[in-house]
Design a protein around this nucleic acid. Structure first.
Lengths: 238, 238
DNA sequence: CAGGAATGTCACAAATCCGTCATAAGGCCC
DNA sequence: GGGCCTTATGACGGATTTGTGACATTCCTG
């Protein structure tokens, strides 16, 4: 799952630099340069982490941090603060106030990414693991386990990733190309027909009933478009 | 019951920051910046945990740690050490010397609190029994003893730590990389396949039955993902 | 310093998985 | 119904991943 990051910063060039690098690394970025607005966005956008510059307009970074910690919905939101080099007082007050890590300006994008990853790993392990569920199919990404109606389903690595992708976007139709991008990786070259084969293997595994019988197929083939995970098989039109 | 923490640190601003946060979280704090004094206080104050900076006056942190481990009354005292970022040699020697966890400076108080809670959770109950248990496997972390269905299992140090890690996170799949991080230490360079070998040794020891027979394997291999401790072998029929 | 335990690495065997193809089957349009 | 295009399916050889035993080295212990 992509993590969403709220960037609270008012220096235009920094915004650009950081945003570019975060997005390149696969994060979604929401931005604001205003303290009040930051609080609103933190509530509404439900980011997974906040990067907070200590020197921003309208409300100091420290105050934003304090308020975020006070509000129940954002009390545990990871916060990385940005301070000017050597600003010891701010840094200590920042950590006291509840920031989880800090970076002193100037910093390298690589370090920023590394810190963010570290903080997320530490505080949001749930981002890399958790429960996905749809129409009787349950996937525990942490335990790497899949069940259909309670029965364990055995999947190979690729089928696991494929199913995960469907579970993360239930109902949506993906072309073979999109699936190759999302599941195999952007720069892997394989035949598009390969997708068909894995769809087949996934269906076989997921639709196998207790006693060799077939359960309803939850993967819908959309002719000349692709596939989707779908609860309404076909029987709806009739 | 409030837990008492002995903070061995000589940087004034760090003392203040850490003390403030610990007390805010409900810990009692005893402080010293001197190595010799730390040993005395560890005896007299009977703290529940020691936070030990590696760079302190009068006696190096590593020496304090070693002596604490040697004295009977403090041999099992949880120790969290503080090292400068990237000081890998110290860190590794620290863990070898018997520290239970470490933090690299700079760190956030929230992380410190979290680590302390984790260490206390892990080691403190050890004082009342120290039991980890899962699916017939019982581990006494204090006595360094492991049993399967009542029978003692003989493990080497590495296999012991490996099993402990699994017992602390039952069901969860860990990649070889994660296991190297958690069990071998964050910056130890060894081949990933080394994990396989130790998994093998652990399996061999844990799955050995009374009369040379094999018990069900509780360590699940998740192809191209890693390993997990798992009660459900594979086939869970309805 | 010898003896032994513990560890990390290798090399080879075994188990799985993958991608592609050929062919069958299914839909759609005229 | 007859083409024509798209998808389903089973098989197969190669590629990857994991299991396992052996071995050299290191580190203690005595």
């Amino acid at each position: 799952m992509r993590a969403k990051i709220l960037l609270v910063e008012d220096d235009a060039s920094l915004i650009e630099l950081v945003t570019y690098n975060l997005e390149k690394e696969g994060f979604d970025v929401v931005r604001t340069g205003d303290g009040e607005e930051a609080l609103t966005l933190a509530e509404e956008e439900k980011p997974d982490l906040v990067i907070l510059d200590w020197m921003i307009a309208n409300l100091s970074g420290i105050e934003v941090c304090r308020r975020l910690r006070r509000a129940p919905t954002t009390a545990n939101l990871p916060i990385v603060m940005l301070t000017a080099r050597g600003d010891e007082a701010d840094r200590i007050r920042g950590l006291e106030t509840g920031a989880d890590d800090y970076m002193t300006k100037p910093f390298s994008p690589r370090e920023l990414i590394a810190r963010i990853r570290a903080v997320l790993r530490r505080l949001r392990p749930a981002l890399q693991g958790g429960q996905l569920e749809f129409a009787g199919i349950a996937m525990d990404t942490t335990a790497h386990r899949v069940t259909r109606d309670g029965r364990t389903v055995q999947l190979g690595p690729t089928e696991f990733r494929l199913l995960r992708h469907f579970l993360e976007h239930p109902g949506r139709v993906f072309s073979r190309e999109q699936l190759l991008d999302a599941v195999w990786g952007r720069d892997v070259y394989v035949e598009q027909r390969t997708v068909d084969v894995h769809i087949r293997r996934l269906r076989k595994a997921v639709n196998a009933g207790p006693s060799g019988e077939e359960l309803p197929d939850l993967i819908r083939t959309v002719r000349s478009a692709g596939y989707s995970l779908d609860a309404t098989p076909e029987a709806q039109a009739a």
